[in-house]
Amino acid sequence: MTGGGKVGLKHGAGGRAMRALIEEVFLGLASPVDGIGLSALDDGAAIRVGDRWLVITTDSHVVHPIFFPGGDIGRLAVSGTVNDLAMMGATEPLALTCAVILEEGFARDDLVRIRDSMLEASREAGAPIVTGDTKVMGHGEVDGIVLNTAGVALCDRVVTDAGLRVGDRILVTGSVGDHGMAVMVKRHALGIQGDLRSDVAPINGLVRAALLAGGEDVVAMKDPTRGGLASVLHEMAGKAKVGVLLDETAVPVNAEVRAACEVLGIDPLVVANEGKAVIGVRPGAADRVLAALRAHPLGRRAAIVGTAIADRPGQVILDTGLGRRLLAEPDGEPLPRIC
């Protein structure tokens, strides 16, 4: 690590650096549990309770700007936690918590706006917010607002992100890159106009539809947030010790996102999403799950984008339609390039 062993922004960007930090520091907290615990580094934990599973997850949210086209930090916090539960197979959240750290001077009107959008998202997800906590810190001690949500849910079958086998098909539930590009263009004041809006949404209903259609043939799920589709596929490939062959031409990307990526020199495959899932399915069930996803309003652009293969375990091979290359695991937040 450069910078005298200090934590840098790249350690929060969802790539290799962040995984290394977690493995080197926080894995020390892991203790054995009956189920899926910290050491699995999955979207959440699952603890056996009788013949069911209690799924728990927590997530702290910071975003600049706090309000962005398509959503805000409140919608993001609720959706993020509901989606993390859903990625474990728990699509019926029992309850969410909400803890907020505010900077002295934060506008009350903004806080009310954030609360309202949390409420709206929690209703969409059918996930009541049941308890919370508020702290205020001095000016400059925290940047505006940090919002933490935790969630719990019960389910009968847990889906991890490690279940791929050779031959399995990989689906994405819709267009990629929408959230990250909407936020980046605002954050860096890039002066790009166009319909770039975040996809931030709770997708537990969409995932439920996939699970109903695919049953036990749905074998791996993960939401492609920071680090985008590229990061998720590396994680799935690494944990399952398979290779992944990704068909780039099949990956849905909105025209405006593709355009903004082209102008800024960014690969949409590494851009964050907040309302999408990557789903690994046994080959025989792929079409069935795809049809179920497409029948749902949030899954109309779902597509089969890849296949688990025996070659190159842990790596992702991108077929561009013109040739093939290895897709690198993203490291750090994507930034506009000049070359």
């Binding site: 106009q193 593709r258 355009a259 102008v263």
Partner: peptide, 8 residues
């Protein structure tokens, strides 16, 4: 216009 987004 860059096929869908605009920039000055």
């Amino acid at each position: 216009d860059f096929f869908g987004v605009q920039k000055e």
